[in-house]
Design a protein around this nucleic acid. Structure first.
Length: 453
RNA sequence: GUAGUUGUAGCUCAGCCGGUUAGAGCAUCGGAUUGUGGUUCCGAGGGUCGUGGGUUCGAGUCCCAUCUACUACCCCA
């Protein structure tokens, strides 16, 4: 009985045309990274769960793919297993998981290889990550991230460089974007001003929600959190800033939270970053977005997010600074900052924009027709010579009908076909057919090579 | 985790109020054309109508469950 084919939810196969397009994205990003001196690394698809758990918040832990232990994994579950639910049982039956992003494995890598690395260390990494999320538009369970990070330097020049890289990549890909920037210290300053530093995450979510659910509902939630009326006032003040320019925003923030220790630092950092950016030629739009709370779990300073101006899609690039990610693994004072391009979403954006142009899917230049055992040996020899001359060549493997062989060349966009049957062999010539014009010439070997080159 | 939409040939989709043998285009294969593709003509193969139950004399069509894909929320690249 034939098995039904299929692949797991949220995963995809990539055919030749898709791969050509994906490789175009990967190589564009790689070229930019290399131009800035980043060095490539790879890490395993799976990590120990202890490395992964607790780094992405409660929600993140749920979205981790866990790998069942090998062997008799059930024997390790403690005997009085009455009150063990799935969550509690998980650590006993799974000790490995698929990586959720590339940043945490990178932090692990840095700690583990700290003596071999030369700091500040600039690395890039292009690999798939997995999330047990519910798939929808632009959301997959297996997708590629293209990360670059600079670790071992607190300089804001790094932030500026990453913004420039983002700009370079999207210029190269011809995708107009908005680069949104925020700073977690500003968010912390707001919370500090409210006397609710411990509720930072809730506050940022609320700030983001004002547009979505309205001020009155947010007010209720503010009360539910046990915050004062002044807090709500501050929140609405901050929300009102959304229409202002960068300079105006910074000025207003100064008045609102400039007196808080964290807020002051955050504003200073943003000012310095924009100071650097002014010296650079950034073509895409840059905006301060105070509702940006990306990855609050380990980000401590700058936060980045990039969205397409033309296509409705989630963020296609994100990142930020993390002061102490390596601290969890025992290495302190190792601040890093990084960004990550979402290759699959960029692919989807380019498809919607019709931004791939005409992908020719042309790799083979010439197909040698197979006329039978004896003739194919001559074709093999010719193929060898052509390939040595840098001409990508295929020999049709079957002694099939000409119609079929020509059809194969046509469908694969192979521009030339060479026929060498009994007649040509006797005359020591080759029949070269141009598949676009339909013209045919009898050529000797040297002329053949020069024509094809 | 919550909600809505969806599923018919390899692909894109028709299929009326439930009615007897489920169709088309594209793709594939063969022929017209024994050494000449992309056009044309002729023909063929290909289906457990997502899966499992139920209602009915009768279900691709109606009901329930389940799975998949899509969409929104949450969260995110």
């Amino acid at each position: 009985m034939a098995q039904k084919t299929g692949i797991p939810k949220g995963t995809r196969d990539f055919g030749p045309i898709e791969m050509e397009r994906r490789n175009y994205i990967f190589s564009t990003i790689t070229q930019v990274y290399q131009r800035y001196g980043f060095k490539q690394i790879e890490t395993p698809a799976m990590e120990n769960l202890t490395t992964l758990l607790g780094k992405y918040g409660e929600e993140g832990d749920k979205l981790l793919f866990k790998i069942l232990n090998s062997g008799d994994f059930l024997s390790k579950i403690p005997q009085p297993s009455q009150d063990l639910d799935s969550v509690k049982m998980a650590p006993f039956i799974a000790e490995k998981g698929l990586r959720y992003d590339l940043t945490v494995p990178f932090a692990r890598f840095v700690v583990q290889h700290q003596n071999e690395l030369n700091f500040p260390f600039k690395r890039f990494q292009i690999q798939p990550v997995w999330r047990a999320d519910r798939p929808q538009k632009g959301r997959y369970r297996e997708f590629y991230q293209c990360d670059s990070d600079i670790i071992g330097s607190t300089s804001l020049l790094n932030e500026a460089e990453l913004v420039h890289i983002i700009d370079d990549v999207f210029i190269a890909l011809n995708i107009p974007v908005v680069i949104r920037i925020n700073n977690r210290k500003i968010l912390a300053g707001i919370a500090e001003k409210m006397g609710a530093s411990d509720k930072l995450i809730e506050l940022t979510v609320l700030l983001d929600k004002i547009d979505k659910i309205g001020i009155t509902k947010v007010m209720e939630e503010v009360e539910a959190l046990g915050l004062t009326n002044e807090s709500l006032t501050l929140l609405t003040e901050v929300h009102k800033l959304s229409g202002l320019s960068i300079v105006e925003k910074l000025g207003s923030l100064e008045r609102l939270i400039g007196t808080t220790t964290e807020g002051e630092k955050g504003i200073a950092e943003l000012r310095e970053l924009f100071d650097y950016l002014q010296e650079m030629e950034i073509e895409n739009e840059i905006a301060i977005d105070l509702t940006l709370a990306r990855g609050l779990n380990y980000y401590t300073g700058a936060i980045f997010e990039v969205v397409s101006k033309e296509v409705q899609m989630g963020s296609i690039c994100g990142g930020g600074r993390y002061d102490d990610l390596t601290g969890i693994f025992g290495l302190n004072n190792m601040s890093g900052v990084g960004i990550s391009f979402g290759a699959d979403r960029i692919y989807d954006v380019l498809i919607e924009m019709d931004g791939f142009g005409s992908t020719t899917n042309q790799s083979t230049k010439v197909l040698l027709i197979n006329f039978g055992k004896k003739e194919s040996k001559i074709a093999l020899k010719l193929a060898e010579i052509l390939r040595k001359n840098g001409i990508s060549t295929e020999v049709f493997p079957e002694d099939a009908k000409l119609k079929k062989q020509m059809n194969y060349a046509d469908k694969n966009n192979i521009p030339y076909v060479i026929m060498a049957g009994a007649d040509e062999i006797a005359k020591q010539v080759y029949q070269l057919k141009n598949m676009t014009t339909g013209e045919q010439f009898q050529l000797n070997q040297n002329d053949l090579i020069t024509t094809l080159q």
